[in-house]
């Protein structure tokens, strides 16, 4: 427990000490929120979709979480390069504990980032449908954060340096985001698109947020939480496996 706590604390301290990073990583979500939210708003409304800003806000919150989470996971590569990883690797602590502590820390950071995007969205006019459902929304946000931090850590366990990072950015993270239904409704899309969305774990995070924040679910909230939980558990197990295989 103590070990998990100290690993969690370390991630949090590193994050809160880097003000540039905290603010910098809000830039992209904010841009998407404003440019797309207000830019496509009129067309969306004319087409009978309703308020696009309300619709897109949960998607952008998920995006903020996704990016911060994967980054915090992948950050482990820096630990490898700056040598700190050795310090944790030789400790007589189970790899699962180390993996879990780090992931929890990274996920907390990503969750905070998601909250910040939510607050920004509210400042620009977003209105959650019900305050009572807010805790459920937070749960979905945290699960999403946990899932993708574990995912980032798993990737980092297999990488020696940052060279493959652009690859991951363009071929993993961007597709995850754009093909998740975060920007458009999944209803009535061609089957290819909905099939892809259905195998994309981020879709369930977005969907759960939409269900709780604006009332409009595609998969159903129960399914969302089921898929998110199972995927998160699998990813943590996989991450621990890969982590314990690291050699220096």
């Amino acid at each position: 427990m103590n070990v998990i706590y100290i690993l969690w604390l370390r991630q949090l301290k590193r994050y809160t000490r880097s003000k540039a990073r905290m603010i910098g990583s809000l830039g992209q979500p904010l841009l998407f929120l404003l440019a797309l939210g207000f830019g496509f708003g009129p067309i969306y409304e004319q087409a009978g979709g309703g308020d696009y800003f309300q619709f897109i806000a949960p998607g952008i919150i998920s995006m903020g979480i996704l990016f911060t989470a994967v980054f915090s996971g992948i950050e482990m590569i820096w630990d490898r390069q700056f040598g700190f990883l050795k310090e944790t690797l030789v400790a007589a602590v189970s790899r699962t504990q180390i993996m879990f502590g780090r992931t929890l820390g990274g996920a907390t950071v990503a969750f905070i980032q998601g909250l910040a995007v939510l607050v920004l969205a509210v400042l620009f006019g977003f209105r959650p449908q019900s305050l009572a459902l807010l805790p459920v929304a937070f749960a979905a946000m945290f699960l999403t954060a946990l899932l993708f931090t574990a995912f980032g850590t798993a990737i980092a366990s297999r990488m020696e340096d940052m060279q493959a990072f652009p690859l991951i950015m363009n071929f993993v993270m961007m597709p995850l985001f754009f093909l998740s239904g975060s920007l458009f409704p999944l209803q009535g899309l061609p089957a290819v698109m909905t099939d892809i969305a259905a195998i994309n774990p981020l879709s369930y995070g977005v969907d759960a947020l939409r269900a709780t924040l604006v009332n409009g679910s595609y998969f159903g909230l129960g399914i969302d939480f089921l898929v998110l939980s199972i995927m998160t558990a699998c990813m943590i197990v996989l991450g621990s496996r890969l982590f314990s295989k690291i050699q220096l």
Binding site: K13, R14, K86, E87
Partner: peptide, 9 residues
């Protein structure tokens, strides 16, 4: 032999 500290702490 090689550094293994966390610089940010």
């Amino acid at each position: 032999q090689d550094p293994s500290l966390d610089d940010e702490l």
